[in-house]
């Protein structure tokens, strides 16, 4: 018989992250389906807020707490997760595919003699648990299973609804952790540059800028600074998250003028990110396959391109507007501004 442990962690304020709550809901569903006991482990500086949020989950709550767990760090997080797993004695361990847990969970699995699979997008299977994940950068989808236990599964954010039970008081078992000697100090978070935060994972819209923004326009001139203004104004007005094609961010490393607020972190596609947003709008981008694989988890897709034969028209977007993105986005900005006014 399986037993389930869901590992969660808090944010800087010790509140559970959304991805953690998604993992909780997934764990509850799986435990219910398998008739398996459910434990939830909390890693946070102070686990009380998290425990309160999980009061109605109907699970055994375990926590490791202390200043050492305020910030993500391999040595301390691995020790914490290892201790929670030992305490829970679970056969299946679910956790969110957050930067914090992605960093440590393979190591934890190894310490416990277990196995791990990551970027899980679905939990299924009838008699045996089967999980779905992608290979080759979202190009090939596979369903797989393992006989060995414990089996660690990291769930991709956005693939499950978040747990939203009523908060209450809950009994939490504090788990002691033997910490290694401190060797790494986390000194803080750093925004990409210039304070312009353009990556917004929770935004409803992904706005992708392609290399066309920096190429010669109809008048034979490049209008990079105008392009930058239009895009930033749109991001401000719409709250969209900014993505980019590889060819555009690559220009920055070749010494050519490029949009100053773009970094490789914005890159979507084969060697970039695969974000999840309900909608996506592509501009000045050809829609080549290596880029479009990064759109695998974008719901509705629209594109503005001067090329009516661009890749987007080949079944990769729902709507393609054959138009000048400079003109269209200027108008869009005006409409957004008017709406706000």
């Amino acid at each position: 018989m399986e037993s389930i442990l869901v590992l969660t962690h808090g944010n800087e304020a010790s509140a559970l992250t959304k991805a953690s709550l998604e993992a909780v809901a997934a764990g509850m569903g799986l435990a219910s389906r398998l008739g398996a006991p459910l434990s939830i482990g909390i890693v946070a500086a102070d686990g009380s807020a998290a425990a309160s949020a999980l009061a109605s989950a109907g699970a055994r709550l375990l926590a490791v707490s202390g200043a050492a767990f305020a910030q993500p760090r391999y040595a301390t997080d691995a020790a914490a997760c290892q201790a929670l797993c030992r305490a829970a004695r679970a056969s299946i361990v679910l956790a969110p595919e957050s930067a914090r847990f992605a960093r440590v969970m393979a190591g934890v699995a190894h310490r416990l003699g277990g196995f791990i699979d990551t970027h899980i997008t679905a939990l299924g299977g009838a008699e045996h648990v089967e999980v779905t994940r992608w290979f080759y950068r979202q190009r090939v989808e596979a369903v797989l299973s393992r006989a060995a236990r414990p089996w660690f599964l990291l769930l991709d954010a956005g693939t499950h609804a978040a747990f939203a039970g009523a908060p209450g008081s809950a009994q939490t078992e504090q788990v002691a952790v033997e910490l290694p000697a401190p060797h790494t100090t986390v000194t803080g978070l750093r925004a990409p540059q210039q304070g312009a935060q353009t990556i917004r994972p929770d935004a409803g819209l992904l706005f992708v800028a392609g290399a066309g923004w920096t190429k010669k326009q109809a008048d034979g001139q490049v209008h990079t600074s105008e392009a930058g203004q239009i895009i930033l104004e749109f991001l401000r007005g719409s709250g969209a998250s900014l993505g980019s094609s590889k060819s555009l961010v690559d220009q920055g490393s070749e010494g050519q003028p490029v949009l100053p607020f773009l970094t490789h972190l914005n890159q979507v596609g084969q060697t970039g990110a695969t974000p999840r947003h309900p909608k996506g709008l592509s501009t000045c981008c050809h829609g080549e396959e290596p880029h479009v694989v990064g759109w695998r988890f974008i719901g509705e897709r629209r594109a503005i391109s001067l090329d009516p034969n661009c890749g987007w028209t080949r079944g990769k977007a729902d709507v393609v507007y054959v138009a000048d993105a400079f003109q269209v986005m200027t108008k869009v900005n005006a409409l957004l501004a008017a709406r706000k006014a």
Binding site: E254, G311, R314
Partner: peptide, 23 residues
């Protein structure tokens, strides 16, 4: 048909895979 009869651009993407190293 998007499979065999494709635009010239798609042939570049589907069949030929053209790239040019920067610099």
């Amino acid at each position: 048909d998007g499979r065999l009869l494709v635009t010239h651009q798609d042939a570049l993407l589907m069949g030929g895979k053209v790239q040019a190293m920067a610099g």
